[in-house]
Design a protein around this nucleic acid. Structure first.
Lengths: 130, 130
DNA sequence: CCGAATCCATTACGATACTG
DNA sequence: CAGTATCGTAATGGATTCGG
């Protein structure tokens, strides 16, 4: 039987491609996947806890990342109107499912890490001997 | 049986995370996936044909993208020592398999596009009414 | 506590011109 | 033809300061 044609071939550059680009940009930034990971375990965390658990993120980027994720429906922002402020972030179903959709990439990584490393070393060796 | 725990939870931030970051950056740039798509169909193309088929890419970025892909073993660069120059790029098994690994994202996109759009519209509506 | 605003260094990338 | 080199602009992201 014919092997299944990769669907991405039809999807990239198709009318939906602009949106695909958006999704790609969304997950490809430095922090979104880490937030998804942390929130997948904790389900709900307030801002400062997220900051701690992620580690190394500036609050500017955390804010920006969370806003974007909220906009795309990946997290819910829950503001408790108290002083001092208390804001919780909870992952949505959509957010979780995106985390799972990315697994194919991690599997590819695991399966091919050695081959990639070998290719890279070979390339660098070729490049360095003038 | 237990449903499989998303492996990304263990992989992100693990010792292999740096490498995961690399892979993510690799596929997340503006052009790599388009090159994979075009080359998956054509198997082998010379520089100028690639430039045409991708459309909208500058030769600077095409060169850079191809060099990076070559370094990671996703394409093979075949130089024919003639004048004028003739250079073919062929996709490798590794390159093809990466294209397939990304499918999970496109499937997620297809399955959830409406929900994401709805969330985004709702967010924007909330944001715009002051 | 949460987050907006400002400043700054670095990088990304398109346009253009040049070369073996 | 298949690049490299240079330039200018725009976007990215960290550090810091300020405010409700």
């Amino acid at each position: 039987m014919d092997t299944v044609r990769s669907p991405y071939t039809e999807i990239l550059k198709s009318p939906g491609w602009e949106f695909g680009r958006e999704i790609l940009d969304l997950i490809a930034d430095k922090w979104t996947l880490l937030v998804i990971e942390v929130l997948s375990e904790a389900r709900e965390l307030r801002f400062t806890r997220l900051e701690e658990q992620i580690g190394g993120i500036s609050q500017k980027m955390l804010t920006k990342t969370l806003r974007q994720m909220e906009r795309y429906g990946l997290v819910t922002r829950i503001v408790h109107p108290v002083i001092p402020p208390h804001v919780d972030y909870r992952i949505t179903e959509l957010g979780e499912s995106l985390g799972e959709a990315v697994c194919g990439i991690w599997e590819w990584k695991e399966a091919n890490q050695e081959r990639v490393t070998a290719a890279r070393n070979a390339y660098d060796a070729r490049a360095s001997r003038k």
